[in-house]
Design a protein around this nucleic acid. Structure first.
Lengths: 319, 319
DNA sequence: CTAATAGTGTCTTTTAGACAATATTAA
DNA sequence: TTAATATTGTCTAAAAGACACTATTAG
């Protein structure tokens, strides 16, 4: 079927116009490449960490809170609103490198856990133009974060996040079960003004047989204190992914310092999952994932806890 | 902090240049939008179905095979090679609509299960230019597919797929376990020439604490019979997702006709997972997901089987 | 009868959930 | 001693795995 041409003694396949690949590429770059309008491409980065809550009773252990880094928009659109850090894909970087660069710019950390989440491609998600955005999630250990976020001109701030499902509606059709959840995302900044953000996302999932694309819509009634663009959807998506992965991976250890007690770890699980876990069962589940160290945490007005570290051999057999 | 300007009696926020949002957007569209070079964006579509294998002994049940739809490239690059169907994102379609349109064009079906898989953004994945591609997976019931695929000029063909892990290497470092798998993807077309495609993908996964981006590389030694672009990676990724979702969702029913026997369903599971399952346990697990019908499959030289259909109420409690 | 598949019963192992009991420290 | 957390043990329930047995059809 294929046609060939001999170039420098080598048999090169040619297309219907008689061009070799090299000829075609040259022609393409000159004539075709910019013939059609292209969308812009960005990456967006959910950067999560966990830190100790301010406490009143200092005989009690500090509670934990999950935090996400947001930046304040200095220009239209969504001027003055808080947004997930991100930026345009540059032509000479792999997409994940763009994401890593953003992360480094915002937090000055690299070599941390990062994964791609989802690509958001609705036509009207940016009023300036068509923008397709691939979202990533990074987890950083807050003890690495003495470095204040955002050394550049942009205002960056950590917000504690809480995700609460405030309503669930299920319907059964011939296709299967459709679940519509209303999810409240509460964000509280640690200082300064406009510290309280409140978003509601409506999440539609189809559990049954014929499942078309799952959808999310931002529903927040008042729009004074919500996130820019469709970033509430992205945050909701990331939080859900994080919750799911807690259950069957070692992802949580990326949020921990090198040495930690089992109770601290449990508190991290509990804040992210938004529910309490039974101590004894949690320990049993976690024990194969950790190694006991010599260290203990003393001076805490109660029995000191052994400190553990992640067991790097965990998962060797199962995967 | 924010500055305002009154326009038509309304207080509008302005940026540092004194522009309202509307002014900014107009300016942006004129001056900024095309200032930077943009990557091209495409969607790629893995279209899977399951069909009966040709059988010799007609007292035995027909075995099943998982199939994927490929199209033959008519132009450079990768001229003459088989590729996953796909195309450029158009400016006025949501990204998933582009994917749905492609699916409809190739198979003439719509309203079938479809999900986004991953976005591939390596700089050199297309020799013509920078192309970022979001991949999707669709599952279609082959009894819907009397319609021959590809009514347009392009040659489209169903290939049976087998994914075999041919080697696994695990190493333990301080970070955790790293697993490198060599995966063989075997594709066999149902007729015509160049019917046998063979790809090897190297898959690197980090199970431990600090996990950076997971990677895949196409390794196939000979390059006469492999897929175009990085499509072997995409296929491998999709197959893995499909295998995982079989275990905890009802995704498999999208590959089944309306009525089916439990054994047929089990055979679909077994082909996709690439391993045998115990009959009794499979039935126990599947029973809550199906509803018995009045129909039976007779005339099969053995005990006739009841036919079942998907139970649309499945999952109501658990989600 | 036999080949072939359909369908059931039950024992074992593993994992998850609930909860009680004991241990250890600093104030 | 006491408040507070650390750590262990054990019972129960649910899910997963293994395997043996019975049932029903066409030829």
């Amino acid at each position: 079927m294929g046609q060939y041409k001999v170039v420098n003694g080598k048999k090169e396949p040619i297309n219907e116009q008689g061009m070799t690949e090299q000829e075609f590429i040259e022609w393409y770059k000159k004539e075709e490449k910019d013939k059609y309008e292209k969308p812009s491409v960005t990456t967006d980065m959910l950067i999560f960490t966990v830190s100790d809550k301010q406490q009143r009773n200092n005989r009690k252990l500090a509670e934990k809170e999950l935090k996400v880094l947001l930046i304040k928009r200095k220009d239209h659109p969504f001027i003055g609103k808080w947004a997930i850090p991100g930026g345009f894909a540059s032509m000479n970087e792999d997409l994940h490198v763009t994401a890593e660069r953003e992360l480094k710019e915002e937090t000055n950390v690299d070599n941390v856990y990062m994964e791609q989440l989802y690509t958001w491609g609705d036509v009207d998600r940016d009023p300036r133009m068509r923008v397709i955005s691939t979202s990533y999630m990074a987890l950083v250990d807050s003890s690495n974060l003495n470095i204040q976020a955002g050394d550049d001109a942009v205002e960056a701030k950590w917000f504690s996040v809480q995700r609460n499902v405030i309503g669930t509606e299920k319907t059964v059709s011939e296709q299967g079960v459709t679940i519509v959840k209303n999810v409240e995302l509460q964000l509280v900044g640690d200082d300064g003004e406009d510290n309280m953000l409140y978003n509601i996302v409506e999440e539609t999932k189809m559990v049954g047989a014929i499942v078309k694309t799952e959808t999310q819509e931002v529903l927040s009634a008042n729009n004074t204190d919500n996130l820019a663009f469709d970033h509430a959807k992205i945050l909701n998506y990331g939080l859900e992914r994080l919750q799911n992965k807690l259950e069957y991976t070692a992802i949580a250890f990326n949020l921990m310092p090198k040495h930690f007690s089992i109770t601290e770890l449990q508190m991290v699980y509990e804040t992210i999952l938004g529910r309490e876990l039974l101590k004894a069962n949690f320990r049993r589940k976690i024990m194969p994932m950790v190694i006991e160290t010599e260290k203990v945490k003393e001076h805490s007005a109660h029995r000191p806890s052994k400190l553990y570290r992640f067991n790097p051999e965990w998962g060797f057999e199962s995967f």
